[in-house]
Amino acid sequence: MNIFRLAGDMTHMFSVLVLLLKIHTIKSCAGVSVKTQELYAIVFATRYLDIFTSFVSIYNTFMKLVFLGSSFSIVWYMRYHKAVHRTYDREQDTFRHWFLVLSCLLLALLIHEKFTFLEVLWTFSLYLEAVAILPQLVLLQRTRNIDNLTGQYIFLLGGYRGLYILNWIYRYFTEPHFVHWITWITGLVQTLLYADFFYYYFLSWKNNKKLN
């Protein structure tokens, strides 16, 4: 564990907690794409399949449960909680995200480190996470202005993988044979997808005006 990875995990945890808090307290999911939340639930479900078979540390298991629990409860709130579901913007959240699932699955069957069930699904979860934010970014461009909590959620979510990139650089120089091209490339693509969001988020913060 290094400071970059810890910062990345904390940033990631705060992003999902900010969203869960927003939905739970003000009973609103305005501006939030349920498709991105469903994709993230699939990402965690397929990445953490080994949660019971290979124990890494208490921290690792605890964080996996946090991410699994939060992503599935966010989807549940947005789909089945009456008050929250009423605030869901079904007309605008129209990204065909199942195509993303299918193409990532095909890609994982083609490009992976080892051809085993767990490894292919783990690789699939990396590909899917890289593009999971797309429905949310598309919804963002359609929604006139977004509330601060949703903006903070996306900012933290985009930032966490950026911190992971620093972690990979650190581990590359401190651990022999630490080379994982698939993880690195998917992490880079994922972070780059947030580039223009970060730009507008920074502008709105600098000019102290609403993000739109």
Binding site: D50, E113, W122, H180
Partner: peptide, 10 residues
């Protein structure tokens, strides 16, 4: 546990 390098991350 026997985790390969990359699977010790979240």
């Amino acid at each position: 546990g026997s985790v390969s390098g990359s699977h010790d991350e979240l």
